[in-house]
Amino acid sequence: MEDVSLHILDIAENAIRAKARNVEIRVIQNDREDTLILEITDDGMGMNEEETKRSVDPFFTTKAGKKVGLGLPFLAQSAEEAEGMMIVESAVGRGTKVTAVFKLRHIDRKPLGNLDETVRCLKAAHPEVDFFFECLTPGQ
C-alpha cells in the first residue's frame, strides 16, 4: 500500500461487507503532538471478541473461499513502521471502529494520498452507504 488512502479504501470495503449503512472516516493530523490518527467507524454487523482478536492475523478472514485477509494486518504494519499502532474495537450487532496511529513526521510514515478521490470512489461504488469524511488539524 503506497499511501494511507489505499488503507482507507480497504478498511471501508470491510465495513461495507459487514453490511454497514454508515461509515465515518476521520483523519486527524496533529502537528504539535506529531501524530496522524486514522479512525474508521462503521455500524455493520461487528465481530465478537475472538474474531476481533484474530482480525489482525493475516491468515484470518471471513471471506468464503479465501485463505488470507490482509486489510487490517497491512494497516497495522504500516502504523507500526511509523512508530504507531492499530486498535480494533468491535461489538456484534453494533459495528467496528479501527484506529491507526502514526507518528506524523516519521520518515517511514506513508503519505496520505488522495483522500478526497478515495471518498468519492467509495461513494460512487456504494450509493446505498452513507460516508462521512472529515480531516481535522487540531493544534494548528
Binding site: 492475523d57 493475516p58 491468515f59 485463505k67 488470507v68 490482509l70 494486518p73 507500526e80
Partner: peptide, 13 residues
C-alpha cells in the same frame, strides 16, 4: 527487509 508476519501471508498467497 520486512520481518512482519504479513510476509508469510504474501508468500503463501
Amino acid at each position: 527487509l520486512q520481518t512482519h508476519a504479513n510476509i508469510v501471508a504474501v508468500a503463501s498467497t
